[in-house]
Design a protein around this nucleic acid. Sequence first.
DNA 1: CTGAAAGCGCTTACAG
DNA 2: CTGAAAGCGCTTACAG
Lengths: 351, 351
Amino acid sequence: MRRTTERSRATLKEVAREVGVSICTASVVLNGSSSGSRISTGTRDAVIDAAQRLGYRANLVARSLHAGRTHMIGVVPAATDTNILLGPHLQHVLNGIVNETEAHHYDLSLITRCDQSHPTDLLNALLGGKMDGVIVVAPRSNSRLLPLLREESLPMVVIDGDPEQCDNYFVIDNVQAVRIAIKHLYNLGHRKIGYIAGPQELYAARIRKDAFFAVMKAFQIDVQLEWLQVGEFAYHSGFEGVKRILRNANLPTAIFCANDETAFGAMDAIQDAGYRVPEDISIIGFDDVPLAPHSHPPLTTVKQPVDEIARAATLALLEHIDNGTPIQSRTFPAQLIVRKSTGPCENSQFR
Amino acid sequence: MRRTTERSRATLKEVAREVGVSICTASVVLNGSSSGSRISTGTRDAVIDAAQRLGYRANLVARSLHAGRTHMIGVVPAATDTNILLGPHLQHVLNGIVNETEAHHYDLSLITRCDQSHPTDLLNALLGGKMDGVIVVAPRSNSRLLPLLREESLPMVVIDGDPEQCDNYFVIDNVQAVRIAIKHLYNLGHRKIGYIAGPQELYAARIRKDAFFAVMKAFQIDVQLEWLQVGEFAYHSGFEGVKRILRNANLPTAIFCANDETAFGAMDAIQDAGYRVPEDISIIGFDDVPLAPHSHPPLTTVKQPVDEIARAATLALLEHIDNGTPIQSRTFPAQLIVRKSTGPCENSQFR
DNA sequence: CTGAAAGCGCTTACAG
DNA sequence: CTGAAAGCGCTTACAG
């Protein structure tokens, strides 16, 4: 009798030999689909028993090789050279993806090699047969990955990507999102509205800025370029952006920030300068991250249904892989969350 | 001549046939270690050319099967049923792990099936041969995973786990961390100190609470149980914890929070109640998350060298896998970051 | 310089 | 009810 505590690396062959049956029989008993009904109870039990004793565990790599699929999904998040990977928004996206893959018994692999540097490297990792599909999150517009990947047959889905560049995109309706934000400010009487944008290599940042111009025009408000700053979707971007805006003689009564972290920085800068939010300057953000209700004052923002987007994208991908269901791109509506960082324009000393 | 734009699934065999050489020759040229010096330039070029045309790409699964290794590391984060997965701390840990695995050309797989529910499921995913090693992050104390995994031969490393229960742990010195926090308060004159703990199934939460008792004793301060609350490492835990503490007639002059998010909630609750931080009640946190310098007031906290811990753990694991280097458990020192949420006790109306 | 063969561990028709 | 055989795509001694 063998020690069971030994490095349990028993293979099907060893189990079979132990029992004295063919490796095929062992396979059918242990992992067979036409589950063992065809096997006599005696053999069956003996095999199971032996497998137990020897600590047998199916080798998934061998299985994958045979099956031609791995049940593994690759996730390629935005480039790591900035700390965008670390933002709460990406984290929520990841969380949504994980929940969905898990429910469908898929594993998930994080592929982080920078888009731009070695797209070849990335492609090898993705196309080497280890992934059944890929989810690209917020690709940079200069990324060479997307066009390359489009020519391959690997099932793919893109979250927060440019619909113009993606076949299968899942994205919020950024234009509508910007519209409800501006409309909210407009209804409060604001006509002097600034904007702090995100990094323009990111689709979400670019489209929001473009939408800002378009929507402002629709509301017949002139965009003042001195009130327009470009940041990096980060706290310091908001902080410094506002500092720069405040150097002007003429100040806006409201500032729209391209994401919540920027908005946090913006509010602090305003208050640092001795002004009040929202009395002097209203601030509105984008995303509705967990801390948004807890900022000072609580942040008015445009909420993305992040979890829904991430799960829908993942589900579409998995169903395509599993059943060949065609993938339908989708656009999701944004929702305005009114809290305390926006108020009527009439109180402002800058109006 | 074939279309190159076809589903590029060319295999070694096809490339070999195309050129008219053996599959072995093709293998040596394309992926061979004793790289091609033994192959004539003519054959070599022909093979490379054919591979190009047919869009050949090595099948990594087949390679793994042969090599008996996958270059994939599994990461098992704390249970998903709470939203601890979403906290900034775990995100930093993940980020550190990713950076290190990437530098060593390893892939990373997120394994999130809940510890407790189906440890067998989890074990299969981990031990099916798809992972060369595993990093467990902040296991719950009731997790059945750890003991099971210890009996297997899969290389493993634990971040934020109980040294008593882990062979290879990488963890901050929680006792020292608590000591410098309490000492800081002590030196400011505080003797009435409350504590808001984290969920006690988590080692980090438990050890910090235990350390709190031990250190208080060392400083000869009595622990008031009315000032002790147990939360979930979340904003609302701090907020509600403080609300409960404030119901007492006798109030503390300082509250130590087991992580920063708890501290954010605690500060808001104090200010909500009309008291001042730090004048009436000092608050000190734990972690030093990115927003800590930007809270109101900026948070005094105990900083964990998260990135260093995560990278050291990952590196040790990879070197063990690659070279058989034994894994050395390590404990890391914490560092006090003094900002504005702590102040002298003498100003407090509660002293 | 090049090829035939065995093997990684599993699954799946196909016979018997 | 059970087994021999081929195959997934690659690598690696071993001959020639």
